[in-house]
Nucleic acid binder design. Sequence first.
DNA 1: CCACTATGATCCACTGTGTATCGTAACTTC
DNA 2: GAAGTTACGATACACAGTGGATCATAGTGG
Lengths: 191, 191
Amino acid sequence: MSMVSDARVVRTRDALRQAMTELAEESPLDSITVRAIAARAGVGYATFFRHYADKDALLADVIDALVREFLAQAAPWLMRRDRVGSAKFMCDFVLARLPIYKALIAGGSGETVRGEMLRQTMATMAQAGERRPEGVRDDLVLFQIVSGILNLLAWWLRNLDTVSAETMAEVIDRLVLTPVSTVRHEPPAGL
Amino acid sequence: MSMVSDARVVRTRDALRQAMTELAEESPLDSITVRAIAARAGVGYATFFRHYADKDALLADVIDALVREFLAQAAPWLMRRDRVGSAKFMCDFVLARLPIYKALIAGGSGETVRGEMLRQTMATMAQAGERRPEGVRDDLVLFQIVSGILNLLAWWLRNLDTVSAETMAEVIDRLVLTPVSTVRHEPPAGL
DNA sequence: CCACTATGATCCACTGTGTATCGTAACTTC
DNA sequence: GAAGTTACGATACACAGTGGATCATAGTGG
């Protein structure tokens, strides 16, 4: 994929991603400047722009990696049809990486996370040769699954003290996964 | 509420809200400058800051008015227990004000809309003396209703050409309203 | 009618972005 | 290990947008 053989490039980009992650966990995204990122990464200011067009491009790169990690680990769970088990895995996964997910999902850039999650999920499904369920707008279904789960997780991350991962998994199953699975087999008129 | 008797103030604020609305329908929110808003409103640049702390404050004011309008007209529908009818009303309502809702919900500030919608809905319910259903985290329920509907509307506004309002109302009912209503009476263990 | 105050015009300091330049240091390839 | 390539740090700069300040003027409410 990435035809980068120069060790300096790898080092710099890793440092920038790491710096962005750290800063995102410390302060709101809008207040993070390119200068702060470069400083934290121990990298010259101008060097930043040799690797990323702007702050959002770096953030997208960070999110891309996070989503990739999630999908890789989640794949076996999603193969089985154990809905509550899948939901539980997601809750535990987020819980184990609390700071950054709190910053991203509950913070301002849930939009970007959702977009990247949708993109990569579609790509993964396409290469897995998933067949399209007939009579159902499966882009709407996928959108609802991803958005619905991210929504509930966003709420949960702001209410961790009052709701356990087990309970949240059950909620996700009842409010998103099960409803979507029923609509898949018995679509409303018109879809 | 607003203790403003000076006609100039009313005129200026109306002009600013109107200008913000027009510009939001024309271009992405981030690219709208305070200078552009002031110019469009036919108002001096410095005058803007005499009424709003920044661009977001004005946007919040505009959204506040939109949500207020929605809740006022939606109240009768929400009193009845006709879920599909309520969903249909929402779809038609948004459809009748397409440009601004497309800019806000499908655009970048869905977060603000959701927040304002949650705030005002809670306030409305509180003053209507809605009783708290026992054993259910009703803040989670309300959050899910508002977020879920706004999510699906956001998708719909990007796919208006392929899905009718009637179909969308049915989808909203099946994916959000009905699931939430079942969890209300039979909550998952732990809530 | 008059005191009051919102307004328009303009200036300014400040922050952040993104580009350009240049000498130096590090890396890859052979 | 040497040579050629290339990324890097430092710095300067043009530019856009913000938000606060001033002051004469015009509109407003009592």
